[in-house]
Nucleic acid binder design. Sequence first.
DNA 1: CGACGGTTTGAGTCCGGTCAATTGTCGTGG
DNA 2: CCACGACAATTGACCGGACTCAAACCGTCG
Lengths: 249, 249
Amino acid sequence: MLAMALSEMPRNAGSSAAARAHACESCTARSISICGAIRAEDLGRLAAARAHQHVAAGETFLHEGEAATHFFNIIDGAVKVFKLMPDGRRQITGFLFAGDLLGLAFNDSYTYSAEAITSVKICRFPRRQLERLLDEFPKMERRLLAIASNELAAAQEQMMLLGRKTAHERIASFVLSLARRAERFGGDGRSVQLPMTRTDIADYLGITTETASRVFTSLKKRGYIELEAAGRVHLADRDTLEELAAGFE
Amino acid sequence: MLAMALSEMPRNAGSSAAARAHACESCTARSISICGAIRAEDLGRLAAARAHQHVAAGETFLHEGEAATHFFNIIDGAVKVFKLMPDGRRQITGFLFAGDLLGLAFNDSYTYSAEAITSVKICRFPRRQLERLLDEFPKMERRLLAIASNELAAAQEQMMLLGRKTAHERIASFVLSLARRAERFGGDGRSVQLPMTRTDIADYLGITTETASRVFTSLKKRGYIELEAAGRVHLADRDTLEELAAGFE
DNA sequence: CGACGGTTTGAGTCCGGTCAATTGTCGTGG
DNA sequence: CCACGACAATTGACCGGACTCAAACCGTCG
């Protein structure tokens, strides 16, 4: 089961394909991530089958256990992917943003749920369509494999975080990973937008809301970050944050 | 970066390819996992490039950060894959056994290290060879994609464990996952072999050696498991273990 | 303005970590 | 065969970082 941040791709992987023009004009430029791997005129079949969809903030549009009939391309907004335990404990396994793929599974049913954080625009494709497409365009398959490979490396990094890092190191790692992502999309990396709540962040980092909040204040008091309005975080001392995140005590 | 337990594959995925005879006769039957995806006569090229290798227990044969020049097929023995922090904290991201693939990366360098737990027999291939092969045999690529997809689902399950489960739930989940694996290879699922140390188990589950040990004794006292000789664990009350692992309190 | 959801802060608790000592296991060699 | 050493596992006493429970605070929106 793949729920992947296409944007996590390094620049070198599949860049030639991504650089090519694409025909998915009604999706934003970011959907080049999926469309770039196949030729424009061949995209017709996929385009014909796709359906655009709006999801309101807070709505769960993909449920763990349900039949995996479609896969999605996030066009705009922020999404959280999570798993639940019977007593309500939640682990968020990833945040997805514009350009990311979701639900690309080779299982019969989804192994996680997905909920819109902000209002979200998504592009939905039937899974069967994708499989037929993969047969015809091996380039796309190679690209997906590279993406999955990168996702797996990111997952292992997250295991390191969840298994061994302190609360301070987790928050520092989290803020920095968002900063790096922003940089790849032209941001200056000096400040980050946090569209998700403290509870979401906590459930992603394996801590509680209270601890997340306390650590943010602690990092602010130490002068590493500044908490601006509307969920923006300014990285005042990025070098120290990097050291903290990496575990240099 | 892929380090994957091929044996984690569900029966349905790529079964037709796996069922076919293969030419990798000097690797054990389990290496069918990788060889099964391409035709026997076409395997010659890979076979010519491969090199068998013996690794002694305790030896680290793959180092995080080194150039990713090869990928490996574990033929026999047990391997741990891990990441280290500067101060020595360790997170084991997976245990690999006979038939599993390792080091299938699309990055320039490995993002983790691998150490032999027992004496290990591995089959080493140059990465370039693989990439050429993928071009010619899309079936193999599809198979790898399915494998990666499954690995990703397993990684998310592990995130749930590391982020939200109690020590008891972690140990129960761990023992059960090994039991399920043993069942897939013809075991009766009533008892499991643990080739790794308590410290390895702890570093895999995000706890300490002492806690791992305490929980094992606790589960024994409750009558859920029995600790036999030579690292064997008997699952005395599997149903309760399943409930514990899933988080029904 | 008041209601509501999210955030912050405080006080007290506890699970799992730390430190330390003991016991068990196994291979080696006298 | 047993003594020895090295390492793994267990057990105990204590500690502390993160959790729990609870209250106050804040921004937004009807």
